[in-house]
Design a binder for these strands. Structure first.
Lengths: 279, 279
DNA sequence: GTTTATTATCACTATTAGTGATATATGGAT
DNA sequence: ATCCATATATCACTAATAGTGATAATAAAC
């Protein structure tokens, strides 16, 4: 049995809800349902009463709760001790695309710090092409970039799926500038390819350095932008932005964690890879 | 992480060898290798020094060993407490083919008893057809029988693969009697089908009740028999028996654990299913 | 240098876990 | 009552992982 089941169980018990637990542990709700069911199947008795307001522990569930808290705590203590003893070594030089850094990394790095409290870590953002160069020059250990990557030179592991969206001001007219990151950004390349395929080869491109800047300008009616849905939503808020999916095949992007094929991953790096498994 | 990894680790540490550990925990050796590697990958450091005489704990491995013993013990204690609290309930009425009972069940039931020390359990042996009838009449909860089973009436879970062998006396001549269990035995049916396909429709069939009896008579030169390799080997020992595989498609048998489609499995039953996963 | 006992690797398959869309259920407003 | 908001369950699909059995590699002992 996997201790992940117990961690999921504790998350549900703690939040009092399957869906809240799913958010807390960064996975989809159906996943929590499945894990709790596995746990219940294994033990042969229900641990939660489900109802309107979420989930409440049954008597049997409380009994499990006592054991689970103890077991998980001891397990994590042991894990920390061992990871510590294994030697954390050098700082991990990490890179990521602007949007990934903004939306995906916070939760990820938080989990990483929980497992390697002492591990030093640096982060540099930039477009895919630049990050790959930095990795190749060994100035970064690893980075989150958009697929595909050259399999002969790099190893990689799938990290996230992003759906690219066209972001416009709600009152905007069409045929304005494309607001984008500087050249080398793969999202920008997607946008340009899409425009070309539509015959808009003359669209002006305005380069900007930050996502906030781009979205601000879009809101101000200067033009439109291409960004992952997750990132656009994060800054959506009250503002009058309209999101429409970038049509296939331009809209789907896989973000991978990438490193040099001859680079020996440090322990923090391996742990980071492990954390990517459930997202 | 799965506690199975820790159990595997303890088995290796205890026996001092990957292959011995594999036997102890009933799995193939490459499996142990893979699990230990997973563990080492997770922790980032080798836990065993491998060499001629097997495996010895590294310093780091000893550190893990201390934690692992504690964690596994606590985990199993908690599990026992919870399984106990869930209520063991009625005795499990189990059936199995003669050969399965002889060769496969001992290890399996031992593991089962470890998890449900108090669970009462009865075992009845018989050929596939008879066992299925007993299940249908609700005189058995579940049984190990040869595939295929009627999916509309039964649920099932794959338990073992068996390779059927023709067992002859080493000095025997061909065209003797087929020594077999009483009618309803699916292995016997396989043997008969094979004989028929070879044109030996006139072979005399001698019915016997036990595997030892059959193999004894084969050794005495009375005829030949059809039996799973695992069972034949168990009684092989010093005796002068020759095993040749029953040709395809007669030779491959899947043994499944089967129960009535409308039967609600008790907890012992569920645990038994879980134990089947790794064999 | 061959033998023997051991672990590692590999290609393949079976099984399991995860995903996202959608269905279902339940209490509370209106 | 009906609709709405908020839950969990289910499902078809895909990705990832673990298990298997054969074979290779390795190293000590003879």
């Amino acid at each position: 049995m996997d201790i992940n089941l117990l961690k999921t169980f504790l998350a549900v018990a703690g939040t009092g809800s399957f869906s809240a637990a799913a958010q807390e542990i960064h996975c989809v709700q159906s996943n929590v349902t499945a894990r709790i069911r596995r746990l219940e199947q294994h033990l042969g008795k229900a641990v939660f009463e489900r109802g309107r307001g979420g989930a409440r522990l049954t008597d049997f569930g409380s009994r499990l709760h006592a054991h689970a808290e103890d077991l998980v705590a001891r397990f994590e203590a042991a894990e920390r001790d061992l990871l510590d003893a294994a030697g954390t070594s050098a700082p991990l030089k990490l890179g990521a695309m602007e949007t990934t850094a903004a939306v995906r990394l916070p939760a990820l790095l938080k989990s990483l710090k929980r497992k390697h409290p002492g591990a030093p870590l640096s982060l540099r953002t930039g477009p895919t092409a630049e990050l790959l160069s930095l990795i190749w020059e060994r100035k970064l250990d690893t980075a989150f970039v958009a697929a595909p990557v050259d399999e002969d030179r790099f190893r990689h592991k799938l990290a996230f799926h992003e759906d690219l969206m066209v972001v416009r001001s709600s009152e905007s007219q069409s045929d304005q500038s494309l607001l984008a990151f500087r050249s080398g950004c793969s999202y920008r390349a997607r946008g340009e390819n899409w425009l070309a395929s539509e015959g808009h080869s003359d669209t002006e491109i305005v380069e900007m350095g930050t996502l906030e800047g781009i979205l601000g300008c879009v809101e101000a009616g200067m033009g439109f932008a291409v960004a992952p849905e997750s990132a656009a939503r994060k800054f959506h808020g009250i503002s009058g932005l309209t999101l429409t999916p970038l049509p296939a095949p331009y809209g789907d992007v896989e973000v991978h964690l990438v490193w040099r094929i001859d680079h020996k991953p440090a322990q923090v790096h391996v742990t980071l890879c492990e954390l990517l498994q459930t997202r």
